[in-house]
């Protein structure tokens, strides 16, 4: 057996684009390997969409992963190898073995030189205004992200119209997902988990709340899905049908018309609040980044899954397609290792 000497890693730098879960996970793994990271983020805050999500536990953790973001953020701020640049917009990107990036930050310009880059620019939540569900027209029709934010910031669930706890809530799944007419031929992976976990939390806050879940197929999430799903079927009404029109009834209550397959007829039912589970769609910068960095998008508009190991530009997280917080953490780690391997190969 030959023993190899452990070589000290020469100081290298990687550019990470996007400060969401995947970007933070990648940056932390790289930094642990003594690689310098320039983490650029276009908004003023790190954490991405996941930082807006609420804890969905009701005494018992339901493994949604929202709390992990806090931990990643804390570690990133403390790690001296990670240089965080928020409020940045990429102006120029050159890759001739060494990656040269120029970004605008406020009124000044910053340049970085990096040995590899990881795109972790995230997703865009689907905007449901053009769906027939009355979003932005009716006060009490909100999205699951609105609901998560409300739980996190207000520690409460209230109807936007009168700030009262809704007695009945309808969740409508697959809004903007599984939709060929929008060219969204994908399941967004996370919405069943988000909706059912929040539903469980709401039931634990106010058990008398009547919750109806309109769906096509319930997707598996979490390690104890079978048990979770069986218990949810007892607690809430599951309707395997996507509703049609939503109209507004008395007292700002949305009225939903849906086809009841069992009764074989349409039913008009009034709910106090409707939550649309909106899908994950390609990030709004994907096209721009794809052109700027010469990385191909797939026919859905997400970054291609295949690695660009020859150019040193890697993709991670929801920039590649819908995924959960857990999967984004894994994917960030994977991309970090790919980048490290690339740098090693280049050194040989």
């Amino acid at each position: 057996m030959i023993k190899r000497k452990h070589k000290g890693m020469p100081k290298k730098n990687v550019l990470v684009i996007g400060g969401g879960v995947a970007g933070l996970a990648a940056a932390l793994e790289l930094a642990e390997q003594e690689i310098g990271v320039d983490l650029i983020e276009k908004s003023e805050f790190l954490g991405g969409h996941a930082a807006r999500f609420s804890c969905k536990a009701s005494g018992e953790c339901v493994k949604c992963g929202a709390c992990i973001v806090v931990e990643k953020l804390k570690k990133s701020f403390l790690n001296p190898n990670i240089r965080i640049h928020t409020g940045c917009k990429i102006k120029k990107f050159e890759n001739n073995g060494i990656i040269k990036t120029r970004v605008d930050k406020e009124s000044s310009e910053i340049s970085f030189e990096s040995d590899a880059a990881i795109i972790a620019s995230g997703f865009k939540p689907f905007n449901p205004v053009n769906k027939p569900f009355g979003y932005k027209r009716f006060n009490n029709v909100i999205t699951n992200i609105d609901l998560e934010e409300m739980l996190k910031l207000e520690d409460d669930v209230v109807r936007p119209s009168d700030k009262r706890f809704p007695k009945s809530i309808a969740f409508i799944q697959c809004v903007g997902s599984r939709d060929e007419s929008l060219n969204h031929l994908w399941c967004s992976h996370v919405c069943c988990g988000s909706a059912l976990r929040v539903a469980k939390k709401i039931k634990s806050i106010k058990p008398e709340t009547e919750i109806t879940f309109f769906y096509i197929d319930v997707q598996t999430f979490g390690k104890d899905f079978q048990e979770f799903y069986d218990s949810m079927k007892q607690e809430i009404r599951m309707v395997r049908s996507i509703p049609g029109d939503i109209l507004i009834s008395d007292n700002d209550c949305p009225q939903i018309t849906f086809f009841d397959s069992e009764k074989n007829c349409s039913i008009d039912e009034i709910f106090e609040m409707v939550v649309l589970s909106i899908g994950l769609t390609p990030g709004e910068d994907n096209k721009n980044l794809s052109e700027l960095m010469d990385i191909k998008l797939d026919d859905s508009g997400f970054f291609k899954s295949g690695e660009n190991s020859s150019t040193g530009i890697f993709t991670a997280g929801t920039s590649r397609g819908p995924m959960s917080i857990e999967d984004a953490i894994l994917d960030g780690g994977r991309a970090a290792l790919e980048a490290i391997k690339y740098i090693d190969r280049k050194d040989l």
Binding site: E29, Q33, S305, L330, G333, R334, A336, L337
Partner: peptide, 19 residues
Amino acid sequence: PEDYKAEAGTAAIAVLNNS
């Protein structure tokens, strides 16, 4: 299988973090 590949990456990096 592709996620397992990603996990193989993260497990390896978890080891390397103890270098």
